[in-house]
């Protein structure tokens, strides 16, 4: 029983998706489940590519880690985004949605993305707001990594 309970509420790792979606559907909003079951843009981009920015963030309160990468073309437009998250359904859904939203935006537009928009789209409850915050911080970290890389490349 304790095991079941912890699986409904606590962090679920990505690999058990198929085995656990039966108990899951009871507590998450449909949008969260959609992103959780069919996550968009899972994967990695080449970290060393100068057009790729990588954001790696963690939530010490729940032990989640999130990696979000963006690929920017020469006009400053984000042409690709990938993520990898080990954490709860809300964290996975938040990062999945974030990659979907930043694609096609410019770097400056992407900076304006707010966690509250993510939370609203996914109807996250107050206890899960920090998951959307984590996604926002991941985007910011990826963008700042990209900027630093560009500045260093310009110096050379």
């Amino acid at each position: 029983m304790a095991y079941l309970f912890s699986n409904i509420w606590r962090c679920l790792c990505m690999r058990n998706r198929a085995a656990l979606n039966v108990v899951q559907t009871a507590s998450y909003h449909a949008n969260v489940i959609d992103h959780y079951e069919n996550p968009r843009n899972v994967g990695s981009l080449d970290k060393k590519d100068r057009n790729v920015g990588t954001g790696l963030v963690g939530a010490p309160a729940c032990g989640d880690v999130m990696k979000l990468q963006i690929k920017v073309d020469d006009d400053g437009k984000i042409i690709d985004a990938k993520f990898k998250t080990f954490g709860c359904g809300s964290a996975i859904a938040s990062s999945s949605l974030a990659t979907e939203w930043v694609k096609g935006k410019t770097v400056d537009e992407a900076l304006k993305l707010k966690n509250t928009d993510i939370a609203k789209e996914l109807s996250l409850p107050p206890v899960k707001l920090h998951c959307s915050m984590l996604a926002e911080d991941a985007i910011k970290a990826a963008l700042s990594d990209y900027r630093i890389k560009q500045q260093e490349a310009d110096k050379k």
């Binding site: 790696l56 963690g58 010490p60 970290a141």
Partner: peptide
């Protein structure tokens, strides 16, 4: 409490 903010220790 353990803080809720984001950790960045790369």
């Amino acid at each position: 409490e353990i803080p809720e903010n984001t950790q960045l220790d790369q």
